[in-house]
Design a protein around this nucleic acid. Structure first.
Lengths: 183, 183, 183, 183
DNA sequence: TATGAATGAGAATTCATTCAT
DNA sequence: GATGAATGAATTCTCATTCAT
């Protein structure tokens, strides 16, 4: 039963939390080892260089893809987007910190920058898909709407996550966009 | 004639550039001294601890306020917002990097987080003011529109600044928003 | 009226207190300047090198010589020594810290070591004089008695000054010695 | 055969000598490393902060307890004390410097102050025990006598150790005390 | 006489990384 | 596979001292 998670996973978990809390540079591998409950040498046994940890973290990034069918309410963009965003928030969950970490370290770690762009593009795509499914014959600039919402969502998830009722704000913004799309 | 800027300023200039390039943690104070052309000791003479540099940088942040009268074209929200955004882009200019730095270090430096929020709120306010001036009797959710645009602009200025035609994208998004506001 | 003590004196006062509190090495001249309320440059204006401060402190050491006539009670060694010690304690007064400083820095500053020995020898001499005056025809080993008492007094003044009722202990010890001298 | 002492011990040995020679503050950890023949990093591997070295030194302080039975000559306090003091001098041996170090650093390092008091109290106890064993029915103030002698011995061992024939002086003082105790 | 900016030598400490076991 | 001692380069910070004004 004491069937613990494997050491490698525990190290990555610890790294994820600590990198998110204090940043990559400010987190010594020794602190990661402590938090993971493994000896210091083991961290370098699995991840020869420190940046390898960051890359492994990027590789195990949870897939945030949401099945459009599961959220789309035909004819009701507002509600559809609402459900999409709620689903994304939930799937982010504990990894909200991780999300910000990507922004933080993107500049200095190309692999992170890639992941960041991929995730943003995916977000835009999903929003667009949901809009298209909910409002098939919309001739508004769906692309721009998707970008705007994606920016707003990303902003909340990273920088503004410390600020009060972000969820409510997103809801209002998304309602505004939906209205615009419906003419 | 060699009318140099005072050493303190030169140090801050160097810190701004280097912090933006490599991040706060990855920039040794010795590199700042080198770049500023001053001895290492002088950096600590003016800024006893390294974070003091960051705080001084935040304090001398250029005011990004744009005079609404200078950009508003009555009756034309699209053009008004267009001019506002162009003006902001220009005023950012060289400090675009600095702008990203704020996002990067916000998590670990409370003073930076404060500045970041202040700047975002100012941005929202300005957008709202311009919309109100260009479209006095708008009964759409101006607030949400302002937030959406502010998020998009911030996003471009920080994370997405490496990506191709950001300016064009913003223009399209802003046009979409304007259309929505005008009904 | 604002007739402050001269800056040089204020610097020495500050140095005396701070050296005694934290030791010579651990006291930056800048802290001395702060405490003295003078600019940093002035400390080095008066005392070119830091050790000069210590030497000046040694030179202005208060003379602890007590007039034997003032304390001797003929025929009563106990009371005589009692008064001598009380007088010494009082004259030390605020400079008790200074007294310990001498012990601390003696090893690394020859001038201090000299002063320390001189003061100890003076202490022994005074005790001997008082004994001789109070008990003219004593054939006990007055010298050793004086040494013992001087050691005990010095010990209390430096190391043991943090420990509870030192004064009472000294009184008992001195009474014991007096009894021994009287046979 | 090169059966070296472990690195940690070598570091402590080096620290002990150097601290005693030049004081705690004036001894760079780099000099300790050099003297111990280990790289600088290893000093901080074992002793994260410099004061930890001092505390470790205090903890490995040799026990100075002397078996009373080994020194007491029943009926002869002078000789008994004589032997006790000689034994203590010998057991101090090379750590005489260490003894002075305690006095020096007591003020600024609580752990050292504690050790100093403990050692002084132990010294007093031992002297009292020896007196009691050599002179069972003494109604003089044995406690004061012990304190006086302990002060004198401590004084010689720390401050006055540079001064000529300390041993002879102590012998005379102890003889005087013994005479007093025997009436 | 006074001052505070400037300097640079060194101090303690941190930490990724290596490696013998 | 695992481990913790060992290494040394790099970093932040301190501070006596100098000096132009």
């Amino acid at each position: 039963m004491t069937d613990e998670r494997p050491a490698r996973e525990r190290i990555l978990d610890a790294a994820e939390t600590l990198f998110a809390e204090s940043g990559f540079d400010a987190t010594p591998t020794s602190r990661i080892a402590d938090r993971a409950g493994v000896p210091k040498g083991l961290v370098h046994y699995y991840f020869a260089r420190k940046p390898d940890l960051l890359e492994a973290l990027v590789e195990r990034l949870p897939d945030e893809r949401v099945d459009p069918a599961a959220v789309v309410v035909p004819g009701d963009v507002t509600e559809s987007l609402h459900r999409l965003v709620a689903r994304l928030d939930a799937s982010l969950g504990s990894s909200a910190l991780l999300s910000h970490l990507l922004w933080r370290e993107a500049d200095t770690h190309p692999a992170v920058l890639d992941a960041l762009h991929t995730r943003f593009d995916l977000l835009v795509d999903q929003i667009r898909d949901v809009i298209a499914a909910a409002l098939p014959r919309c001739d508004a600039d769906v692309d721009s709407a998707a970008h705007l919402l994606a920016s707003a969502v990303s902003y909340r998830h990273s920088v503004a996550r410390h600020v009060g009722d972000g969820a409510a704000a997103i809801r209002r913004e998304l309602t505004f966009l939906a209205t615009a799309l419906e003419r």
